[in-house]
């Protein structure tokens, strides 16, 4: 047997199923190989879905209907994105009249929600987390902490109907500032992240400020809060992304103030073609993906502060 034949024999022997299984089992490699393969498969399928959707968004209707699996054949219609941009509209009833809300107002509503809700919510959470973590001498802060744990970990959900009634009773229904108020509870999911953050800041900074005559609010506003700007930034971006892609909350609570997410969702039910619709979805997802690409380390890092120790 010459060298080439020997190599071929060795390769065939190595990859023989019985030998491969024995070799993998002997080195304890079956588990990592199988699970890693599963992970790769998941990523391939998911990426494949995104890539197919992207290429479909560049097709003509003819290409889409007759060649759904292929790349665009007739032409690559980048124009679909321009057309989808202008097709993003929502019909609403205002003062008894049916009107079409255009892209400008959709963007404005989206930005008001995406910026206002996180600002209000995070400031309130910061206030609660700060006093709860640093003023434990007062019983109320310990009670508040217990309430936060209860709210976050015990499942009690009021019905949607009562939520709507309360919003209407308080005059917050169909008002963007109403959403700022409703979403700005200080006991939400970000509380624990901020709590851990404030606890990690040395109290000696505050003591030094008190000795210099600073008030409690001054210490909070000018010393402690600026030290959490990294956390604030990460949580702001996370909340911005959530609000940007949320179509359901505006649909329920802001019927005459639709957002761009609602318009993108509604494209599938209008007479637009599938390539248009996919282009509209990518337009909605693009700012989010850009933000994620720029800040993914901060975003994924901020979530670790709320993790549980085993």
């Amino acid at each position: 047997m010459n060298a080439v034949q020997k190599l071929g024999h060795d390769v065939r022997t190595f990859f023989k199923p019985k030998n491969l299984k024995r070799r993998l089992k002997a080195k304890g490699k079956i588990f990592p190989v199988v699970t890693y393969t599963l992970l790769v498969l998941w990523v391939v399928v998911f990426l494949g879905m995104l890539i197919w959707a992207f290429f479909t968004s560049l097709k003509t209707d003819y290409d889409f209907i007759y060649y759904p699996l292929d790349l665009p054949r007739q032409e690559w219609l980048w124009r679909n994105y321009m057309d989808a941009f202008s097709a993003l509209t929502v019909e609403v009833t205002r003062d008894g009249q049916l009107i079409e809300v255009g892209l400008g107002e959709l963007l404005l509503n989206s930005l008001l929600l995406c910026v206002g809700v996180p600002l209000f919510a995070l400031f309130d959470v910061a206030c609660c987390a700060y006093v709860t973590s640093r003023y434990k001498r007062f019983k109320i802060t310990r009670i508040i902490f217990a309430i936060v744990i209860f709210v976050n970990y015990v499942p009690v959900t009021a019905s949607l109907a009562s939520g709507l009634r309360i919003m209407k009773t308080l005059g917050l229904y169909d008002q963007i500032w109403g959403q700022w108020i409703a979403a700005s509870g200080g006991f939400g999911a970000f509380f624990l992240i901020y709590y851990a953050n404030f606890k990690s800041i040395p109290w000696s900074y505050a003591e030094a400020a008190f000795v210099d005559g600073a008030s409690h609010f001054t210490v909070f506003w000018r010393i402690m809060l600026p030290m959490t700007r990294g956390t604030f930034g990460a949580l702001f971006i996370t909340s911005f992304i959530t609000q940007w892609t949320d179509y359901m909350t505006p649909m329920i609570y802001l019927p005459t103030h639709p957002t761009i997410a609602q318009a993108a969702w509604g494209l599938q039910f209008s007479n637009t073609s599938v390539p248009y619709m996919l282009a509209g979805l990518f337009i909605l997802a693009l700012p989010v993906l850009i933000l994620f690409c720029c800040f993914h380390k901060k975003l994924m890092g901020s979530m670790t502060m709320g993790g549980l120790k085993g």
Binding site: D124, C127, C128, Y130, V131, Y135, F138, I140, T141, I144, I147, V151, I166, L170, I181, S184, G185, G186, F187, S215, H216, F217, F220
Partner: peptide
């Protein structure tokens, strides 16, 4: 200070 910082959140929670 503690009462002022918690007031809004407590009212929001109550509602």
């Amino acid at each position: 200070f503690v009462i002022c910082m918690l007031a809004y959140a407590v009212v929001n929670f109550a509602i």
